[in-house]
């Protein structure tokens, strides 16, 4: 049952991912992305990570997609801009490169061996509940990365402000 669900989610995520990139209409892309995010949340549920699943839906599907839509409405991009490539035969080079990379990755995935488990086993996470287990890890062991992530968000705010604010003319 779990395997069946996993393959369903995996298939949909890959198919949607390809469709989003190839889709001509950006609004369709964004709406397909919404479906994609819900399926991603399914992965988290399969991994006993219900908190992450909820965050995935609230933050990505709820907040970030709305931002995307706002941007699309603001720039009013009906047709995508096309430019002639710098290297003429670039397309075939790209396809060959991508195939080579795919084969390499496939080989890597096939020989994957799982390393030793950490302190949080499935039973422990189920007993603690995922939200609490994650909260504990983030606020104790991983407090330093957590704080650095906070500074990154601050930089995003400062940088966004600096880039978006209109310059006063002639001052």
């Amino acid at each position: 049952m779990v395997q069946l669900l996993f393959f369903y989610f995996a298939f949909v995520v890959i198919a949607l991912g390809l469709r989003i990139v190839t889709c001509k209409n950006p609004v369709h892309s964004v709406l397909l992305m919404l479906v994609l995010f819900f399926h991603m949340a399914g992965f988290y549920l399969l991994l006993n990570a219900e908190f992450l699943a909820a965050v995935q839906i609230i933050v990505y599907a709820g907040a970030i997609l709305v931002l995307y839509l706002f941007v699309l409405f603001l720039v009013n991009l009906k047709e995508e801009v096309r430019m002639s490539p710098f290297i003429e035969k670039g397309k075939w080079l790209g396809i060959v490169g991508a195939l080579a990379l795919f084969v390499t990755f496939l080989r890597g995935v096939k020989s994957f061996t799982l390393g030793p488990h950490g302190t949080y086993t499935i039973e422990k996470v189920q007993q603690l509940t995922h939200t609490k287990a994650m909260g504990e890890a983030v606020y104790t062991t991983y407090i330093l990365p957590f704080e650095i992530a906070g500074i990154i968000l601050l930089v995003a705010v400062v940088g966004g402000l600096a880039l978006a604010k209109r310059e006063k003319k002639g001052a």
Partner: peptide
């Protein structure tokens, strides 16, 4: 990774 993102994000801006 986080240090790298902090550096890179600031430089992009």
């Amino acid at each position: 990774y986080l240090g790298l993102e902090l550096m890179a994000l600031s430089v992009y801006c």
